[in-house]
Design a protein around this nucleic acid. Structure first.
Lengths: 124, 124
DNA sequence: CTAAAACCTGACATCCATGTCAGAGGCAAA
DNA sequence: TTTGCCTCTGACATGGATGTCAGGTTTTAG
């Protein structure tokens, strides 16, 4: 498929797909005229890359993890595995932090609603 | 306390504290010479602001939520409460997404380790 | 064949929290 | 008083993913 189709299938802009290639996160074969072509596998790969971006990883960090995805457990993926473990832990800690924040918001909202109910009762 | 102490107590840079004030997320009293002074309450407030930034809220969004924190359930905080509910839901969805990502990383790492164990067995 | 739509490269723009620097003033200890 | 550290304002810089535009080529549909 060409880049436009990959873009609509993944919900990622054409601009971003080219950027991923520039960052060596994604590869494409080129038609004789130079247009990029992708296989269906790339759909999943782009989705995964998006996941990692959403988890706060940078392009260069993602690049370091990819050997782990592309060629599981070959020699050169040791460092990738280690890096992945490190990012996993960071992400886990971040999630815990966000859960605390969620909790704080829930408490705040509950307090506000309670106060509002109090006002309503007092008025009648 | 002065700004430097608030900075060290919260782990937030002096630059950022001034920025928070510029965004009207934080207020200070000024000494006659113009230096900012804060009460201990501000420590908690800064920590909360940091939480919200870490949860992906922008300065203007945080500003919209603050009435909910400062003056619970006064009339003008209705919009703030609604906005907070909206952000809460967004955050909750984001956490779910991150949990999926965490899961994906765990699976990948397990697969890599399994493969590595296979290689080790074959060698002996 | 022609027009529209999609693609190419390269470059510059954007957002936004934070860093950093410059120049000036404030305050406390020696 | 002098020295050193803290603070002030204002301005410019940064990073990184993405948007956008220009000028040109390719593909597709009619």
């Amino acid at each position: 498929m060409r880049i436009g189709e990959l873009a609509t299938r993944t919900g990622v802009s054409v601009r971003s797909l080219r950027y991923y290639e520039e960052q060596r996160l994604l590869t494409s074969t080129r038609s004789p005229s130079g247009q990029r072509h992708y296989t269906v596998e790339e759909v999943e790969r782009v989705a995964f890359i998006q996941r990692l971006y959403a988890a706060g990883l940078s392009s260069s960090t993602i690049l370091q993890l990819l050997p782990c995805v592309d060629s599981p457990s070959e020699e050169n993926s040791d460092a990738a595995l280690e890096r992945m473990a490190q990012e996993r832990d960071r992400l886990s800690a971040h999630i815990d932090d966000l859960l605390c924040t969620l909790d704080a918001l829930d408490h705040l909202m509950a307090a506000n609603r309670a106060h509002k109910a109090t006002l309503r009762t007092a008025r009648h």
